[in-house]
Design a protein around this nucleic acid. Structure first.
Length: 102
DNA sequence: AACATGACGGACA
DNA sequence: GTGTCCGCCATGT
């Protein structure tokens, strides 16, 4: 993967507005590499601390917090709620809070 | 080179 | 709605 794509991805993640979420797959598509959701996972895992990314605004395509994320689903839940996003007991978020840039 | 592994996604039953 | 199956793609061993 080229460096510019990687930078692009980091920029996109930084641009997720407070109070909204998006998915791994959608970020991949925005960066021009559809079907590469797993690459986004890799970026988040390796670059979050370095770039101060809002990692908590990224959930899976079913708008649900990943159960086994290394940081902890509970912490992600707290962060989202602190931004005003309702998260239910199962970690699900309603689609009104999905970031839909046009 | 050949596997195995993921904070995944889509199709299908 | 749920669960299974398979494709995906960079990385690690």
């Amino acid at each position: 993967m080229t460096e510019d794509i990687k930078d692009n991805i980091i920029t996109i993640i930084k641009n997720i507005p407070k109070g909204y979420v998006t998915s791994y797959g959608r970020i991949a598509s925005m960066a021009g590499i559809p079907r590469s959701a797993r690459y986004i996972v890799y970026i988040l895992k390796t670059e979050t601390s370095h770039h101060n990314l809002p990692w908590h605004r990224v959930v899976n395509s079913r708008l649900q917090i990943a159960i086994k994320n290394p940081i902890g689903q509970n912490e992600q839940m707290q962060l989202l709620r602190s931004e005003g996003i309702p998260v239910d007991q199962e970690g699900k978020i309603t689609k009104e809070y999905l970031w839909m840039p046009y």
